[in-house]
Design a binder for these strands. Sequence first.
DNA 1: CCACCGTCATGAAACGGTTCATAATGTAGC
DNA 2: GCTACATTATGAACCGTTTCATGACGGTGG
Lengths: 338, 338
Amino acid sequence: MTQQAAHRRASIADVARVAGVSVGTVSNVLNRPERVLPGTRERVEAAIEELSFVRNGSARQLRAGTITTVGAIVLDIANPFFTDVARGIEERLDRDDFTLMVASSDDDPDREQRYLRLFEEHGVQGVMVVPATNDIEHLLAVRRRGTGVVLLDRPSSDPTISSVAVDDVRGGELAATHLLDQGHTRIAFLNGPHTIRQCADRHDGVVKALVAAGLDPASALLEVTVTSLNAEGGEAAIRGLLESGDQPTAVFCVNDLVALGVLRTLRTEGIAVPTDMAVVGYDDVAFAAELSTPLTSVRQPTHELGARAADLLLSGPDAEAEHVMFQPTLVVRSSSSS
Amino acid sequence: MTQQAAHRRASIADVARVAGVSVGTVSNVLNRPERVLPGTRERVEAAIEELSFVRNGSARQLRAGTITTVGAIVLDIANPFFTDVARGIEERLDRDDFTLMVASSDDDPDREQRYLRLFEEHGVQGVMVVPATNDIEHLLAVRRRGTGVVLLDRPSSDPTISSVAVDDVRGGELAATHLLDQGHTRIAFLNGPHTIRQCADRHDGVVKALVAAGLDPASALLEVTVTSLNAEGGEAAIRGLLESGDQPTAVFCVNDLVALGVLRTLRTEGIAVPTDMAVVGYDDVAFAAELSTPLTSVRQPTHELGARAADLLLSGPDAEAEHVMFQPTLVVRSSSSS
DNA sequence: CCACCGTCATGAAACGGTTCATAATGTAGC
DNA sequence: GCTACATTATGAACCGTTTCATGACGGTGG
């Protein structure tokens, strides 16, 4: 099937032969150069160069066991929230010369499972996961087998598994309370599926705020499930909403990409923001402040989130599990307040 | 150092012992289940379950040689342009059940080298790279050793190495010509370092346009090197520019993130766009159209770029190298034309 | 002159899978 | 009853490293 190049990659034995030494010596040159006589070392290095030898990572790892790589599985690599988190992770990892590989599950439990398995089989030190489902049994299993696991952007329901999250209930509450304060009594929530914990939590926060204001969520809250959590999903959802009668006066979007799609649609439809419709997003991504209608959004400490998660992962498998919970803040801009 | 859990992970031999079969049989259950009697298979599967056995990917790969993973190294994982490209890659890969791992070099040749080595040592089928430097000798070496290489967003200077790119000279030309058409005769270009080929090419395109218009680039073009190619970099660069006298009437930004920083700064400084200063960006990211001043930008076919690159990589090491060049288009919005 | 020691290099045993030639067993045909 | 032939299971060889006990060698001190 895969014949790659004409000849096999050079192995350590080939190098040894060319240099006229044993394989053990080549290995020593590679791993503990100080133990080998300069003359010999040079000969070996010349042979390595000549054969353009590259270590076989699989063999190396099979024997040595250890590796300085960690994995991260996020829901959507195209979402700036997750890439900002990834930057936080990378930064922390750099300090310990660890390497990060990112994969995106696309909210698909099967894909998550596949990447998880891939990472585990290749023996990463640990993996940071934004789970696509509420059930984390499979993650506990990974953990039991000895691979570090840190839940990302999601509080852990299990005391033995570390997590770094932002209080999503509070986030939903902040957004809803703000809209209520602005006089809205009927709020649409363009949310993702409740199988994603963050979405369920934000929903709970919204309900909490409505109840606290003496409203009945059944009538005051109109939740719409967005199929894909990006601008296209937001556009589709708001269009559906506009076509039905009985419209709300405010829309709370589960993230800023969805909000972007909403703003875009409202503009083309000639609906004024915030006068005809108030909009609130989530994540406070870089461009939120610069939109034609600057977007009110719930800000999360993305960078710290990632850095802290990496920190916990590197603290080793024997460290006590920790559950870090950051607090979101609301950044009010003109999309929701005139 | 790494003591992982208390006991070693279960191996295929452990499974064999528990199930009362040979290692060969366990391997067969794993890889060609149809060849083993249902009864035996069940016993093996039970043992796998009991020991929560996970294949050792290193050993597997060491022996089997093949792996269905490809790597991508981009300049900045937080840049929507690259993540959009990554989406395109993923989509194509999904068709062949390949898996993508993304790493970000951060414009740093050393990091690029490190990830390249990591990917190569782990035997990926191939790697897509947005090179951080002009010199691609190290990529040729990787290629020679049998790992597929496709240059991403960058035309190849070597005929044997495939590349998928967008015509950056043309992109720069489009942007500059447009600004000239709008009557500007002194244009600032907030560009990245010329070690990044895309930046050098866009510069050449700008110069080409100026010359075609009968202007002297030495006086008509004011190039400023942006330290980091994001909003913060853009903000810093434009502030530096505003503080110096002798200002241009238009700014062309090497990407939309830089343009975002510029727009933000101009707004806080009370400089009107496009009347006092026209702004053009690059990439036409999702939010470009929705900014307070909708941003004129050079659009690149990100999705196709990624998909095509993946396509070339999967076509195998024996396929003829191809050099795909897409054409950018200019999307004019109000940041540059009143 | 010998015992001892330190420095380098060696070669074989792991690591945990896959693969393949071979053996064991059962079935069918004559 | 014997041969021929599937069908399953076996176990050893192998992949390319690292590691470690062992050996070769020369130099020192007694």
